[in-house]
Design a protein around this nucleic acid. Structure first.
Lengths: 227, 227
DNA sequence: TATTATACCAAACGATTGTTTGCTTTCGCA
DNA sequence: TGCGAAAGCAAACAATCGTTTGGTATAATA
């Protein structure tokens, strides 16, 4: 597999060269394809591991605990994955990719002549919705990982941040966003805050749409009373 | 200090009943006082552990690693602390208390008739400065801890959040903040974003004051162009 | 039906974890 | 000078970690 820096994570529906267990050797679980059942089991394991990381933390996400959630023994996980690291890496890559695609496609569906406020609202709504619906998402998982592992998804995180950077830059170009703001600072400011959505929900009990609306209007108009 | 349910963590400068090692038994490290040298060593250990958690994560913060940083052996740490949990708990409580006191006192120094913008700016500046200066602060440490341990500082976190809640509520009462915003949602929104400051710094390289200023004006006025 | 790949288990591996124990060194104080 | 407390070390403890190994049913294939 040719892999120039992008990581070798699984891409749903991607058909590549078939993997075979030759000479009685163990299958190379890192390769992206396999039996239909094998693929299903892989996803179940990934879900179990992700859920465990989010609810109990990375420490508690042991191979034995993951295996128990999918009714297996720890050693059997190695039929589907090469290592624990591979599981976490796949969770990370799959999650950030999904998030990126969702927001990017949502933005592309917005008409060319739409206002910045409209575009921002769309992006925020998509981002927040993806964080609220499922229990185990990229952002949920990410914050529980030790720094060494976090760094591995740096590239894809930056790619996602660039999506937002371009959105704001476009807003400035259109004259709808105040150009005095340093985007290098504004983007992580806003995005960083947005990723704490799960916490806001626990604290306020608010729904997805209401949260998205607050974040959008607060950023656009501020909270000061206009005179 | 009256603290119902807050635990029995160490308070710098607090003189209590003297601890003695009676009958040749090990000293009860959890009690708040001791020799001057003992207190110094405790702080050194706490610093080492906190630094390790921030830079390498909770997993990497082993007793042996902490001990090595203060030129000791793992077992010797148990002369100063009852357990690893006690170390982490003390880091957490000491950190959040310091943060609370700093912001609270800064707000008290603001004149009674000052505007909300002034008060907000003060609070944000203090909060951000405390996050930027030191490497190991409460917020830095907190985000690397497993959920089980995080929950232990919930009470004090809520106490700190209430400080900000009151600040915004006061702004609304003065008619300077738009009352349509649900504070149950606005406070975690803003505070959650503010705590990612370390990330903003890594991403933008900006300084403490500039970050505080962006956060303040962005929240107050928004980023839209006024017509 | 014979064979082969699939998908798992039981059991162990060495390494590392937090913690305990008994012993030693250091040092202030009488 | 001698004594007791303070402070720390060496070595082990059971538990748990990720991982490996050899083996075994099940299902597909020829």
């Amino acid at each position: 597999m040719v892999d120039s820096g992008g990581g070798s994570w699984r891409m749903p529906g991607t058909g590549g060269s078939r993997m075979r267990a030759r000479n009685g050797k163990r299958p190379a679980a890192a390769v992206a394809v396999g039996t239909a059942k094998q693929r299903t089991m892989r996803d179940e394991i990934l879900d179990a591991a992700a859920g465990l990381i989010v609810s109990e933390g990375y420490d508690a996400c042991t191979m034995r605990a993951v295996a128990a959630l999918v009714d297996m023994k720890a050693g059997s996980l190695y039929y589907h994955f090469r290592s624990k690291d591979e599981i976490v890496e796949e969770i990370l890559n799959q999650g950030i990719e999904t998030l990126y695609v969702c927001v990017a496609e949502a933005l592309q569906r917005v008409p060319e002549d739409a206002s910045f406020a409209h575009r921002l609202s769309t992006a925020v709504g998509t981002h927040v919705a993806s964080l609220v619906g499922k229990d185990q998402t990229y952002m949920h998982v990410y914050e529980h990982l030790p720094p060494v592992i976090r760094r591995r998804s740096r590239r894809m995180r930056e790619r996602y941040a660039r999506l937002w950077h371009d959105l704001f830059a476009d807003g400035i170009a259109r004259g709808e966003v105040d150009g005095i703001h340093d985007l290098q600072l504004l983007v992580p400011y806003f995005l960083g805050g947005l990723n704490r959505v799960p916490e806001w929900i626990r604290a306020s009990g608010a729904g997805s749409e209401r949260i998205a609306q607050l974040a959008t209007t607060a950023l656009l108009d501020g909270i000061s009373v206009r005179q």
